[in-house]
């Protein structure tokens, strides 16, 4: 092994000696900023690898001469401490030009040597992704001006939560307060609000509706009155769904983080709205103290199940008014109810 290292070092020295350095070269390092998160694979340096995410570029001047690039990465863990050596890479000589990290290991910019700090590498690997700060130092071997940049990884939560409106809540058409958790590293938030056309529609399906009521980039604020973001008028009685999308910058389009989806209602002050009918049904079920209908009651209270409608045994649906009358009658004549069972 020692012999191999000596041979490698000797050949490197020989290669370096053969480089005809005619002028002082400068390398200007550009890094993707901000870069809240990335895969560890972005920091793999090996030959014959393709498809690496482009997160840093090297602008070398003057161009055309043979140069050797030294890249050294130091790491400071997220919980503080000092920078420690993570890995370093030396290329074989190549013709000076501008390039990015995704060309490392290619035929003309091949890697001659790479070393790493095993302890730090293992610690990082256990995190599963780059964390804390990475200081990247580049130099042209044999003299010249190098450069250095720091990338800080905030690793935002993979999903976040809408605080208000609460699922299943009702609001006046002018008073829907949207608020959500901060996402460290987000460059902006987008609020999307769409109608849920039927309570049987899944929330995922509803948020994908083609013509949302709100589809607005709100910058970095985490609260908004939805009234001020409306693109078209919503109407009382509608059930809406809302989702926040956080934009996390990064190569290949960056990434989007999505909040959970919440549903809420626009208050309809008249009887007959889904919300009112569901409330009326809830009150009825609460009057049945022998456990009849307790499955449905539990579904309504715990799982936000809403009443879509009632139909007769011949299949014809009751109007909203008929439903309200039926429920009202049953509230006053609970002994009329025989059973309420799930239809499989």
């Amino acid at each position: 092994m020692k012999i191999l290292k000596i041979v490698l070092l000797s050949s490197l020295l020989l290669a370096a000696a053969s480089v005809d350095i005619k002028a002082q070269h400068t390398v200007d390092l550009q890094v993707f900023q901000p870069l809240p998160e990335i895969d560890l694979s972005a920091f793999i340096y090996t030959n014959d690898i393709s498809g690496l995410p482009r997160i840093m570029c090297f602008l070398i001047n003057p161009k055309g001469d043979q140069v050797v690039l030294e890249l050294n990465i130091e790491w400071q863990p997220a919980n503080g401490g000092s920078f420690q050596e993570l890995l370093s890479v030396v290329t074989n000589p190549f013709t000076a030009r501008d390039f990015c990290n995704d060309e490392f290991g290619s035929s003309d910019i091949s890697i001659a040597q790479s070393t790493s700090n095993q302890t730090a590498i293992e610690e990082l690997r256990r995190s599963g992704r780059p964390t804390g700060k990475f200081r990247i130092n580049v130099n042209i071997q044999g003299g010249g001006d190098g450069d250095s940049e720091i990338i800080e990884f905030s690793n935002p939560a993979q999903n976040f939560v809408i605080l208000t409106p609460e699922s299943g809540s009702s609001h006046d058409i002018g008073a829907v307060l949207a608020s959500w958790e901060d996402i460290a590293g987000a460059s902006s938030y987008k609020v999307k609000v769409a109608e849920r056309s039927s309570p049987t529609q899944s929330l995922d399906d509803a948020i994908e509706s083609g013509n949302p009521y709100v589809d607005a980039d709100v910058g970095l604020v985490t609260v908004a009155n939805l009234r001020t973001l409306l693109q078209r008028e919503w109407v009382p009685g509608q059930e809406m769904v809302m989702q926040i999308e956080a934009n996390i910058p990064g190569p290949d389009g960056g990434s989007k983080l999505f909040s959970n989806i919440v549903n809420f209602y626009l208050s309809d002050l008249t009887d007959g709205s889904v919300k009112m009918i569901t409330l009326e049904l809830t009150e009825l079920l609460q009057l049945l103290d022998d456990g009849t209908g307790s499955d449905l009651l539990q579904d309504i209270i715990d799982n936000g199940v809403t009443l879509l409608g009632i139909r007769r045994s011949d299949g014809t649906p009751l109007t909203a008014d008929e439903i309200m009358r039926l429920l009202d009658f049953l509230k006053n004549n609970t002994n009329t109810i025989i059973d309420l069972t799930v239809v499989n």
Binding site: D39, L40, I44, T46, I49, S50, S116, I121, R125
Partner: peptide
């Protein structure tokens, strides 16, 4: 898998990319 554009690795690629000292472990 966050990026499948390059397809699966060969055995040689795996020996090259994984193992002690590699970020991928």
């Amino acid at each position: 898998n966050r990026d499948i554009r390059t397809g699966s690795l060969t055995e040689e690629d795996i020996r090259n990319l994984f193992g002690d000292g590699s970020l991928l472990g």
